[in-house]
Design a protein around this nucleic acid. Structure first.
Lengths: 340, 340
DNA sequence: ACTGGCACTCAGTACAGTCGAGTGCCAGAC
DNA sequence: GTCTGGCACTCGACTGTACTGAGTGCCAGT
């Protein structure tokens, strides 16, 4: 059965009012606040149908209606247009990078900006290594049997790892290796490096092969296997807005989930820039976040994806506004990083 | 007026019971649970005195007593002995570093361990740059007018910054500069570098002086001015233990405070290893944390301080246990970092 | 100096009654 | 067929009252 236009209009009104007031909304209040052109009784009938279809529900008899996850879903998909940003928001975004000196700085400023604008918890992934290229590899001798490997990516990310060598190695050998390694890998996309690293070992003089191999294994780990991407988080204090009502009484599970980097990454994992993903309540795979919604998107110059970012809040959130902000910030950060 | 031994014993009993049960403790329950050897009536008299002196208070008439900040202070200073760690805790600490591959790893594992053992919010500062030495400086050309400066400290910390050059610079010049800069700075303590950096500029050929100067300014910023130390945080979910009772009803202010790195650093700023600082409730300088307590100490090999670490929880916390754990972890991390 | 006894206080709980927002349903109007 | 006004009904929220019991302060007695 399909819903006619007025019923959809009623649903929209319910979502908007509920998001604004955080209180179940009744038929009378609804006709007063919106120009629906019909009487409360009619609205009641519509509500009954909407409830039957699972878009809204009553917390208890003799209370108003509240949208369900499914109701929000319909609202997001068909009933909301993206809200244009206010000039103030626009200005905030443009001003936020003043004095952003390096990648860390950009990411931190971005995540705080996002948290502040949306008044939710914000998550920003560092530019993914998978999608970056090697700019330079540096080998710094720590002792005769230890090296520090430093990898600089074109996105500005810097990763370092300690390498234990199988035996003493001369400074000259290290220098020579450094030259070869850069010759081979600089400019390559990280995803393409594994065979190159292997060839590096194969082409080594027998005397050095062992040493090169131990370096190579750390290198591979750093470049590829250690997919563990980094993320920044801000705005957890926003979880306490709206009292204890959201998140069914306790922040516990939400805070726990936010402590796990793996979970954060799942929340915002790669979506093409220009598309925005909205996960509402139960749609979340993570059990602890069944009472939350996540709005996320990818960022990067043009259509390439460097990483993801997004916000997390109660299902009762201002979806149009949040989506608009997340998109705007993502676009801005993408362009900004493209400049470097 | 001084308190006789039994009154102190009563205070200790109150603190211990309250921490365990989180409920105001009355005179009857007290004599039942502790061998005080006197009757409830006597205890009541003692309580009246303790209350008059400000060590305990009644949430309301006809309720038991609750320790005040002042009461906890006395308890910590004079009534508690450091609780020995359980074997399980001991094992956990010893096992935590398995596979810690670099500094980031060590810090993250430490902060999680600390949060888990104390069941509080844990904060760990990265080894302070101020107290580190330069191991190596690397200059990586990005374009003819841009360099990336990478500084590797002996503690394993790596800092990077982008440098905009005043004009095109050849690769050879960069290499030469790299050599000179390392010759001058490698092995030096960061705090001692400013005059050396200046001399580097002064000794440059006039043609290069401008370029060196711009590098030098970024260098100084990175090494010294940018005192902004890094911290890691874990266990915020622990704030929700004990219901909404702790932190007078709302986590808001606490979560807000924890978002500010500057505040976190203040919480755990340098105390000599081997001393432990305890700040109880109102003793905290930060208004948002007036309902919390912080236990912190410094870590480092021997008596040198590399950084601070600590935990934050409700004033109603298990001080002896927490203090013991914080100390043990600090000592362990200090030794661990000394090995590198 | 300690104790037992006693009157008192007051948060918490349980219960009954009222209020009102909101509903579902139905007969009638358009 | 669709909408509306009317009406009876439900039930959470609030109010007032009464009761309970943990805990107290004080005092007279040992």
């Amino acid at each position: 059965m399909s819903l006619d236009d007025r019923k959809l209009e009623v649903l929209r009104a319910i979502v908007e009012d509920y998001v604004a007031t955080q209180e179940p909304v009744g038929s009378k209040a609804l006709v007063e606040r919106h120009q629906l052109g019909v009487s409360p009784a009619t609205v009641r009938n519509d509500m009954a149908v909407l409830e039957e279809e699972g878009y809204i529900r009553q917390p208890h008899t003799s209370a108003g209606r509240v949208p369900t996850d499914r109701g929000y879903r319909l609202f997001v998909d068909r009933l909301s247009r993206v809200k244009p940003l206010t000039p103030a928001e626009r200005r905030a975004i443009e001003r936020f990078l003043v004095g952003a000196v390096d990648l860390d700085d950009v990411v931190h400023k971005t995540v705080r900006l996002l948290a502040q604008l949306t008044r939710q918890v914000a998550v920003v992934q560092y530019p993914s290594l998978q999608r970056s290229s090697v700019r330079h590899l540096e080998l710094v001798p720590i002792s005769t049997t230890r090296l520090m490997l430093v990898m600089i990516a074109d996105t500005g990310r810097v990763e370092q790892r300690l390498v234990e060598l199988p035996g003493p190695t001369s400074a000259d050998d290290v220098l020579e290796l450094r030259r070869r390694i850069n010759e081979k890998l600089a400019g390559q996309r990280l995803a393409d490096t594994p065979p190159l690293v292997q060839s590096l070992v194969d082409e080594s003089a027998p005397a050095q092969r062992l040493m090169v191999a131990s370096l190579a294994s750390v290198l591979l780990e750093t470049l590829v296997e250690r997919t563990e991407e980094r993320v920044a988080l801000a705005g957890t204090a926003n979880l306490t807005r709206g009292g204890v009502l959201d998140f069914q009484g306790t922040l516990r599970p939400v805070l726990e989930a936010l402590e796990e980097e793996v979970i954060l990454l799942k929340l915002i994992d790669a979506v093409e820039p220009s598309t925005t993903r909205v996960r509402i309540g139960d749609e979340n795979e993570i059990d602890n976040l069944r009472s939350a919604s996540v709005v996320s998107t990818g960022y990067g110059p043009g259509v390439t994806i460097l990483g993801g970012l997004g916000v997390l809040g109660p299902t009762r959130m201002d979806y149009p506004g949040t989506i608009a902000t997340v998109r705007a910030v993502a676009r801005y950060v993408g362009d900004l990083l493209a400049q470097n």
